[in-house]
Nucleic acid binder design. Structure first.
Lengths: 136, 136
DNA sequence: GTCCTTGCAAAGCTTTTGCATCGCT
DNA sequence: AGCGATGCAAAAGCTTTGCAAGGAC
C-alpha cells in the first residue's frame, strides 16, 4: 500500500485515484511547494489523468479539513496549497531574489500568544511574512 | 476646502463627490476601520448617495496606488481597506465575529529585525495577522 | 449493494471592464 | 470645452454546488 494511500486512510478518506494523484502532485513539488488548484489541475491533465477542476477544489478542501494541507491566501487572486509541514515556520521573502527563507522563533510565538490573551482571545492560526533585502 | 478635498488633490485625483464620500466613509468608521467595498457601497446607498459599486472598486484601487489606503486580504473571501495609518500596527482577526483588533508590539518588531539581521537581511516590510477566537 | 466520490455544467461571489453619459476644472 | 470620472450592465476569474453516473469497500 502506497504512502499516499495510507495517509488518506488515516485521515478517514477513501483512497481514490484523484485524491492520490493530487497528494502526489503536492508532495513532488519540492521546489515550488505552493500550488494553486489550477496548477494541480493542469499538471494532472498533462499527465493524462481524467479529472475535473471541481474535484481538485473539493479534495483540497477536504485535505485542509483533515490537516493534510495548508491553504494560503497570498495576494495573488487565488489560493495556494502546501503539504502541512511537520514543523511550524514563518516566511521571509527576499524582494530582490525572490528567495524564501523559513524561520521559527519561540520569542515571537510566545509573544503572539500573550498579546492575544491580553485581548481575551486565543490564537487559532497566524500568518507572518517578512519582506526583506540583503544587507550591503 | 475640506480636508478630504485637499487630500485628494495632493494625490493628484480630482475631488469628485464619490471619492470624497468614500474617503469620508473610511475616515468616519473609527470603530471598525476596515471596510470592504461592499460595506462602503451599502453605507453610501443608505445615505442616499447615487453611486455604483464599480466606482467604489475603481476608487479604492486608485487610493491604494496613491498610498491613501491599505488593502488587506484577510481570509474572509473579500478585501478590506483602511486609511493608511500614521503608526505601524498589525492585525488580529476574530474568526467568529470578523472583528479586527489592531496591535503593536515592540518586542516582536525588534525580534523580527534581529531574525532578519541574523540571516543577513534587513526588513523592508512585513505582514502579520493573528487569527483568533474569544477565550471561553 | 450501499454510500461516497466524481465529472460536468451551471451557479455564486468578488472584482474588473466596456461604453455612453456626466461633471470637475 | 475638454477630458477624466461615473453608472450601469456585462464579463471575468476563482470557487462552490446540483445532479446523475461511476467507484471503493
Amino acid at each position: 500500500m502506497s504512502k499516499e494511500n495510507t495517509e488518506l486512510k488515516k485521515a478517514g478518506l477513501k483512497a481514490t485515484l484523484p485524491r492520490i494523484r493530487i497528494l502526489e502532485a503536492l508532495e513532488s513539488s519540492d521546489h515550488n511547494r505552493h500550488l494553486s488548484a489550477e496548477e494541480i489541475y493542469k499538471q494532472l491533465i498533462n499527465s493524462g489523468e481524467d479529472v475535473g477542476l471541481a474535484t481538485i477544489y473539493r479534495v483540497l478542501t477536504q485535505f485542509e479539513s483533515a490537516g493534510i494541507v495548508i491553504r494560503h491566501n497570498f495576494e495573488e487572486g487565488h489560493a495556494v496549497y502546501e503539504i502541512t509541514p511537520d514543523d511550524h515556520h514563518d516566511h521571509m521573502v527576499c524582494l530582490e531574489t525572490g528567495n524564501v527563507i523559513e524561520f521559527h522563533d519561540e520569542i515571537i510565538e510566545k509573544r503572539q500568544d500573550e498579546i492575544a490573551a491580553e485581548k481575551g482571545y486565543q490564537i487559532i492560526d497566524h500568518s507572518m511574512v517578512l519582506y526583506v533585502k540583503p544587507n550591503k
